[in-house]
Amino acid sequence: MNAAYQFVTGPLAWAAWGIFLLGSAWRLVAMYRLARKKDASAIAYMSWGYSLRSIVNWLIPFNALGWRKNPAMTIATFAFHVCLIATPVFLVAHVMLWDQAFGVRYATIPDAAADGMTMLVIAACLFFAGRRLAMPDVRAITTPKDWFALAIVLAPFLTGFLAYHQAIDYDTMIVLHVVTGEIMLAAIPFTRLSHMVFAVFTRAYMGSEFGGVRHARDW
């Protein structure tokens, strides 16, 4: 147990963070180079004002047309993304680890709130899965890659929830939790989860094209 835990929280953690950070940076640089070479006409229209205008308007729930026409999805996806990022970042136990390892400490959220937010993430994942199965529109376009992305994100939250409540076998669960979390981090640059890295730019481009060329909104 000790050797396994030390391995997953030591070398494996460095590897996962390394792949996530360096991988994302590399993908961004490579994509930017490709855009410079092949999408010069698109880059020419990029504008800070129109980009931020579009991004901000899409970050407001029920503001964009897409949000208004898909209310259930809007609630689920906003709750999901906020909790997905806020819970692990501000979790007491995680901040403790930063503090122990690097002496870094910052604000935390109470465990009870984190517990609720974790349940929200799990519930949202189930909602997404339900849509993929029940809605013909969504089922028709769902591929194994989409299930894979969903599973990668669900796993650390499910195991984290079980580990926190010390359900089933804690020792196994905590190692599983760490490993699944690391898989998620490492998967971000190279799977569908890469929308975390690229979405801000695809949205920014559409904002710039609609603002600068068509003089129209894109939300």
């Binding site: 698109a42 979405a199 730019f201």
Partner: peptide, 13 residues
């Protein structure tokens, strides 16, 4: 170029 690549990769379906 980059647009096609980003679109085809990040569409969450």
């Amino acid at each position: 170029g980059a647009r096609l690549k980003a679109y085809s990769e990040t569409c969450m379906r």
